[in-house]
Design a protein around this nucleic acid. Structure first.
Lengths: 187, 187
DNA sequence: TGATTAGTGTACTGACCTGTATAGTACGCT
DNA sequence: AGCGTACTATACAGGTCAGTACACTAATCA
């Protein structure tokens, strides 16, 4: 492990696992791979996480926290024109070369069964993002913030997929333009 | 197997596999499961398909053909207002309770590595859908059909994901509304 | 010094994976 | 009757999966 003093073992493991989940996919990443990449013993992983599923759920949680925190920081810094600020922040997030897709979408696809805890958590986070957008819309005086939020989240999720599938396709810019049109058209 | 006279063995296998891929996920569906569900011997599967990967690719191809054919039929039946016809057709496709997501998106997520044949085929089909939309846009006299097509495809893919994650969320209707706004705003 | 704690390394279990080998059966055609 | 084809059933190879057992080392702290 690189830096045991500043980074706790638990965080280190979660970080390595997150990176592998994001780049290779969740199901395609075995526990042995995580252990090897983290340079630790398997027992250590299972000391901090009771199962691979727990690791996955915490990975989703972490990504959600990061996204959420980034958005809130931007929104706090720019109190007016919240909706555009939010859209710009999300699009920059997607445009980052390190972006590997929204983890909750990927996890949802990899765990399609509603009984799965991973599936449930994914759905929750998708709804949370939508409700964050809705709050911004409400603050901007939009009459039916939930509807606009849904529409914007479609654009956002679509842009994330498109940009993942074909980097530099222009999806981000066109999504931003479309968002502006939809925002302007919302009562 | 149910009906060997009207359905060839090969089609039967592909049909069973497609159903399992769509409902359980591709990686989560083992060859043994397909074989058991189809009521055949494993050797028979490998007589018709040289690998699981080939089965996956043909599954994607089949779904793409179905979607494409459905759209063309609708477009042929309604020569004017092609863009709205197309959007309506896609949204009905998604609203179908049997709809389990666009297979090319799910496959792309399950096979994130660009080297994978499944990944490449998925990207191709995503682009093909976009170019179908672009043609309709061009026929409708839109100035920059590729841009509008990209925006509409974001909405479509987003709506597919949202409807998958939460049935009856209204995503479809709001996506349709958003599409109308974007189409009206396109030069 | 001695005990506790954190972590390592290796080997293992039992299940599941894709793909193959092999022997046998059912049936139609000539 | 004899042959070829299509398919089945079972077993297996070789690998990977998640998760556990156990003996070991190194460091900390009383």
């Amino acid at each position: 492990m690189a830096n045991p003093a500043t980074t706790s073992m638990r965080d280190h493991i979660l970080e390595v696992a997150s990176d592998l989940f994001a780049t290779r996919g969740i199901n395609a990443t075995g526990v042995d791979t995580i252990v090897a990449q983290a340079g630790i013993a398997k027992m250590t992983l299972y000391k901090y996480f009771k199962s691979k599923e727990q690791l996955i759920v915490e990975y989703l949680q972490k990504h959600d926290d990061n996204l959420r925190q980034g958005l809130f920081d931007r929104l706090d810094a720019n109190k007016d024109n919240q909706l555009n600020t939010l859209i710009n922040a999300v699009m920059e997030w997607i445009a980052d070369p390190e972006f590997k897709g929204f983890s909750f979408i990927n996890a949802f696809v990899e765990f399609p069964q509603a009984e799965s805890a991973v599936n449930q958590v994914s759905v929750e986070f998708a709804q949370a993002l939508r409700s964050t957008i809705a709050k911004s819309a409400a603050n901007s005086g939009v009459k039916k913030p939930e509807i606009l939020a849904m529409q914007l989240s479609l654009l956002i999720e679509g842009a994330a997929m498109a940009e993942q599938m074909q980097r530099g396709s222009g999806a981000i810019d066109y999504a931003r333009d479309a968002a502006k049109v939809l925002i302007a058209a919302a009562p």
